[in-house]
Simulated assay, not measured.
Amino acid sequence: MNLVIKDISDYLQNKLQNTLDQITGAEQPTVYYNVQSHSQQILSRLPQLNQKYRPTPWLSNPHLHLIYFDLIKKRTIRLKYDRVDQLKMSDGGVTAIAWYGLDLPTDTPTIVLMHTITGSPESMRELVKDLNAYTGWRIALCLRRGHAGLPMPVAKMNLFGSTDDLREQIAYIQNKFPQSDLYGVGSSAGTGLLVRYLGEEGENTPLKAAFALCPGYNTETGFGNVHPFYSKMMTKKLFTKFIKPYTQTWQQTASLSKVLQAKNLLEFEQAYFEMAGYQDYESYTQATNPIYVFENVKIPLMILNAEDDPVCHIKNFEPYKEVIRQMPNIVVVTTKKGSHCGFYEGLSTRSWATRLMADYLKNLQS
């Protein structure tokens, strides 16, 4: 009798779970990779990829998910960075590194973290805290020019960051912790900087492996696929963060008036090239678009996109599926749900994505 009751209970629980999965869009992730490569060995050690990603039920709508991620969850995270070091770049510009885990043993691995389009130490606290909790590693959040209210003595900024600046930041990290293995993580716009850097460096990068969370792939077309509401809202945020506080910095910038006329991210990105230090849009994109050097990435790299992402649309990934299937070191994971950088699961709204990136990087630890 007890076995019959248990069987009925299990049946009802499975039925309920399947119904909930259908309502919330829970599905097993899809994985794209070269089946002839060594990636299969790594994937076999990541059980998450063989299970359904079940979004937090009330966050299965991508817009609710993004609102919760950006306006609610970020404000609940309590984390105090150990220190923020301002760095003077070779051209006189200023970047910074926000540290978490400075007291860890000197040979503890360090995650070099590249933030979002308007990222700051405050906005990145959740990812910093969770990565440290899941890995036990040190986090070095690399702040780009103009972010977090940094002084801007040189009239130069970049939505995706500068690989030259990143090299100087990585050299600073290496000098401070020469015994620490380095791993890279990019979030949203930070993935553009991460992948561009990896493609330029090829086998010469000190990073052992990397993870790109919600990339837009081709920066020349990706902004055109952003949901109009978010595109307009984020453009206004760019004015607030990087233009208005630095009016003295930009007073000699001839294209400033055109930049201020931008109504969306695509218009902003096509107009601001002078602010990034380039004479025209073509030279800017040739020097910064990660897609031009993507096939030269040599270290293991996992990429995660959600099919319902309203900011970095899944259609950005379509042109590169076959290329990725031929590359021996790249794995792309897509989920049906997850929105933009959230990927919350369970009642506690913990990030499914951060757990995956931590497990991936730990499995590649040398």
Rank of each mutant, 00 (worst) to 15 (best):
C142G: 08
G224T: 05
S255M: 02
I173G: 00
Q251M: 14
T191K: 01
T219V: 12
Y246F: 10
T240W: 02
P245M: 05
V4C: 10
R78E: 14
K298P: 04
F229M: 13
L213C: 05
N50L: 06
K237C: 01
S348E: 13
M233C: 03
L356Q: 08
N363Y: 09
S366Y: 02
K362F: 01
P328M: 01
S231C: 11
D164S: 14
E274C: 07
L150S: 07
K336N: 13
T288N: 15
L198M: 11
D130F: 05
T24V: 15
I111V: 15
P290S: 11
K156T: 04
G277A: 06
E274Y: 07
H65R: 06
P57D: 12
K263T: 13
D309E: 11
W352E: 06
L113V: 03
G277P: 00
S188M: 06
T219P: 00
R145T: 02
G342D: 09
S283E: 12
T288G: 04
K237H: 07
Q17A: 10
Q48R: 09
Q48A: 06
K244H: 12
D130W: 07
D91E: 10
I77Y: 01
H65Y: 08
S39G: 12
A271G: 06
S231A: 15
P215W: 02
K315M: 09
K88R: 12
D165A: 05
P55V: 12
E267Y: 05
D70P: 00
G161T: 02
A254T: 14
R54Q: 13
K74N: 08
A171S: 15
S255H: 09
I72P: 03
P300S: 01
V112D: 10
N18K: 12
R325L: 07
D103T: 11
I303Y: 05
S351F: 06
E27R: 12
V259I: 13
P47H: 03
H115L: 09
Q22H: 11
Q40K: 14
Q169Y: 00
G92W: 06
Q169W: 03
S348R: 07
T219M: 15
E269A: 15
S366H: 08
L207S: 00
N50T: 14
Y33A: 04
K15H: 08
L87K: 01
R78L: 12
D70W: 10
Y53E: 02
A271C: 06
L361T: 07
E220M: 11
K52W: 02
I139E: 03
L46M: 10
L131M: 15
T30I: 12
G101I: 00
F223W: 05
H340E: 08
K156S: 11
Y183D: 09
I67A: 11
D280M: 06
A210M: 05
W58H: 13
V128T: 14
F268P: 05
F242V: 02
Y320S: 04
